[in-house]
């Protein structure tokens, strides 16, 4: 299984990472190398094996429904690239 240039661009678009034409070629070669490594998995028959998502197969712990977080907007927005009137600014969202 190897990726086409088109697929790489599609994946990069899904991941919102700009790939310049110059980068695409090298990226494609390296991704195909990695996918080659990953392909080894397909040799194993895992039918009947339950997938394992966590090392400890426990159940979710629940938090009591209580407000515990104070307003820390000013602290949190110190790191923001662009804020105004307490809002984070982004290029116009069109829907």
């Amino acid at each position: 299984m190897s990726l086409s240039n088109e697929q790489v661009l599609r994946v990069a678009s899904l991941a919102r990472i700009e790939l310049t034409a110059g980068e695409a070629g090298d990226t494609l070669a390296k991704l195909n190398g990695i996918l080659g490594l990953i392909e080894q998995m397909q040799a194993i028959d895992t039918s009947g094996v339950a997938p394992m998502s966590h090392p400890q197969e426990l159940s979710q712990r629940l938090r009591e429904d209580a407000v515990t977080e104070p307003d820390r907007r000013d602290d949190y927005q110190k790191t923001a690239p662009a804020v105004e009137n307490g809002l984070y600014l982004v290029p116009k969202v069109i829907e």
Binding site: Q7, V8, V11, L14, I17, L31, L35, Q42, I44, A50
Partner: peptide, 29 residues
């Protein structure tokens, strides 16, 4: 970036079972 791209690819439509799910099964083995 490479890891994000590969990760995005293995989760994308049509590839989940072959990659992510298979990896989770191997994890159990």
């Amino acid at each position: 970036k490479r890891r994000i791209l590969v990760g995005t690819y293995v989760l994308s439509h049509g590839y989940y079972d072959a990659y992510y799910l298979q990896a989770q099964k191997l994890r159990r083995l």
